[in-house]
Structures are given as structure tokens and as C-alpha cells.
Amino acid sequence: MHELSIVMSIVAIAQQEVQKAQASIVDEIEMDIGCLSTIEMDAFEMAWKQGIKQTILQHAAKKINRLNGKATCSDCGNIFAIQQVYEACPNCGSHFIHITQGKELRVKSLLLS
């Protein structure tokens, strides 16, 4: 259940930004969560519900961009979509792949007021 500590980190980031901007509340939060990041969305939703209680995110609308997995083969240079980190290159079968997208876990933007 590391999702709860992730939610708490998100709350901390939002709090810092609110302070920096001298705003009082977060109206909307936009996040990138890659499909290959180790976030289980059901657990995340549950942790979110609990974790934002009585924080500046309590009433924030939540927008999540799920980014699909993408990799480049280190052997043949092929760029392809992946669902799992252990997938082989569909072109040459190599497992030496470099993941270029899908591991994201970041706060993209906040709408403050």
C-alpha cells in the first residue's frame, strides 16, 4: 500500500505550491501516472479519498493522464508499445530495451485560487 505515501507526497507538493503562490485552495490538480509506474489505480483511488481529507486538496477536481508504455530496443533501435516491463522487442526479440514512457508519476499542474 505505498499508494498512501504517494498521495501524501502529492499533498505535500500541492501545499508547497499553494504557499509559493500565496493561494488558499486547489481547485484542480492534473497528474501524469504512467501505466508502467508501480501504482495500482484502485489502491490509489482509495488512498486518495482518505489522504486528501482536511488538506488543501480536499475539494480539488482530479485529472489523471495515463501514459502508455513505450520502449526503444537497445539492439535494433525499434520503437514499440509495451504493457509490461519484461516484454521483448517485437522486431528482434531482444530484452535489452529502454523504457521511454510509462514510468511517469508526477504532478503536472495545479489550478489555484
Binding site: 507526497s9 507538493i13 505550491e17 493561494a23 508526477r106 504532478v107 499542474s109 495545479l110 485560487s113
Partner: peptide, 17 residues
């Protein structure tokens, strides 16, 4: 009364860690 501001955060959630 309803001033809003978008902040482009682009910050990794695990940044602090």
C-alpha cells in the same frame, strides 16, 4: 473574488525522496 491561477508544477511525486 474568484481569482484562479494555473501553476505548471511538472514535479515528480517522488522528488523529495
Amino acid at each position: 473574488q474568484h481569482r484562479q491561477k494555473i501553476v505548471e508544477v511538472e514535479k515528480d511525486v517522488l522528488h523529495e525522496n
